[in-house]
Design a protein around this nucleic acid. Structure first.
Lengths: 226, 226
DNA sequence: CTGACGCAATAGTAATACTATCGTTGTTTG
DNA sequence: CAAACAACGATAGTATTACTATTGCGTCAG
């Protein structure tokens, strides 16, 4: 039995909720595909509107700017991750294994999921890898942060950091370690694809080797000297 | 006795070598300051030309695009880092201490240096922190990589990775660890400033605490179980 | 029946990245 | 000393961008 999941995102992320209409869902669906194909810089509302047979103005009724659309998609990704983290850590007795499972979730790419039929998770993951840092490496970070645009990302980091503290309550930099690991997992895959001399991760098994590298890193970092 | 240092950068980074003329040096000098003030997106050649009393067309005689100018500045930064790494590791007997010194260099911000009078290193460092990833998170990475635009960054990673291998020749991911640490050092400082809940690093002692966090991380990661 | 809503259609603005051309310097070189 | 040239300023112009404003039409619920 499969359910369709609709994530409830902060209202400030959009002008009009894209999950409230066919056009809105179509905008999100094709925005992901086109961002993946073109990259953030070359992607425009005009091209998107052309592709889905609507007008630029109609896209602006849902998202007030290209940057806000990127914020929406990354927030969607991190909310989805929160849900997955929940599943991955529920009913796992050992703190070590809970942490291990959580690290696997945040460092592996997402696979296609039936419960979100309009979202191509694999494409979205590539967009997150290549462009999500542009959501905060931006002149308006402070204002957007005050508006709560990054809450889901922060909650994910906080959640995993708490799992670290369950394993070792004295580790001094749990959140810094998690943000390092999450961003590194994106980077290593991007490097494997485009700048292979910057990593030992290879295109073929990018997912498994990234998870192995970073899981090893975390457990060594937080190990208490026996 | 202080010397003036002129770094020799790959010719493909510019149209006309900015170190070959007063105007060229002025372009680089003020580009750094304005990128720091405005951020990459809001920075334009028109604004730069206005500020230094020249024309847009004259700036284009030195750099064929805004993106190439960013590539030039990051390449300058990493070439400068190569030189500093050399100084920091020369005449240090212990491999551990060489690695420790190298990690300090790559994770700390650069201070003002007399040997480069036209470059504001502190401003350049902030530009590197906020914008250097945009140099490669870009649709043209592959072509630009083939042209050798990222060589100095790669050499820095390779150099520090080799120091890791001197301490532990069996560590399987030396380059991945170094690229992780370098990018994390930028990120943690950016987070400390703009998204403080994503790190334990604080604005006040961002440099020392970042170096402490990442040095600890590296030495634990590469430690061989006694 | 009506009025609110969703959307298409059209038009337009200011700014952006970038190119092209031409003339005036000041400096080198034969 | 004159010719040649490179460096630069001045001006103009293009295509595209992100974004705004307004109008009108069909649908569907009250």
């Amino acid at each position: 039995m499969s359910h369709r999941i609709v994530l409830q995102l902060d209202e400030k992320l959009f002008v009009k909720d894209p999950s409230s209409s066919e056009l809105g869902e179509s905008i999100v669906e094709h925005a992901i595909l086109m961002l993946d194909e073109l990259g953030y810089e070359a992607f425009t509302f005009r091209k998107l509107a052309e592709r889905i047979g609507t007008t630029e103005a109609s896209v602006y009724r849902y998202f007030k700017s290209k940057h806000r659309l990127l914020l929406y998609l990354t927030a969607w990704y991190w909310s989805w991750m929160e849900y997955r983290l929940h599943l991955a850590t529920a009913n796992v007795a050992s703190p070590e294994e809970r942490l291990r499972g959580a690290l696997r979730e945040v460092t592996q790419r997402i696979r296609k999921d039936e419960s979100t039929p309009r979202i191509d998770e694999e494409a979205l993951y590539r967009v997150v890898v290549a462009d999500s840092s542009k959501a905060y490496l931006h002149a308006d970070v402070d204002a957007e942060n005050r508006e709560g645009m990054f809450r889901s990302y922060k909650r994910v980091c906080r959640t995993v950091a708490d799992l670290i503290l369950e394993v070792n309550p004295t580790y001094p930099w749990p959140v810094a370690l998690v943000s390092t690991v999450i961003e590194s997992s994106h980077m290593q895959k991007y490097f494997a694809e485009h700048l292979p001399s910057l990593t030992e991760v290879t295109r073929g098994d990018a997912d498994e080797s990234t998870t192995t590298f970073l899981t090893d890193l975390v457990f060594r970092a937080i190990a208490t000297p026996a």
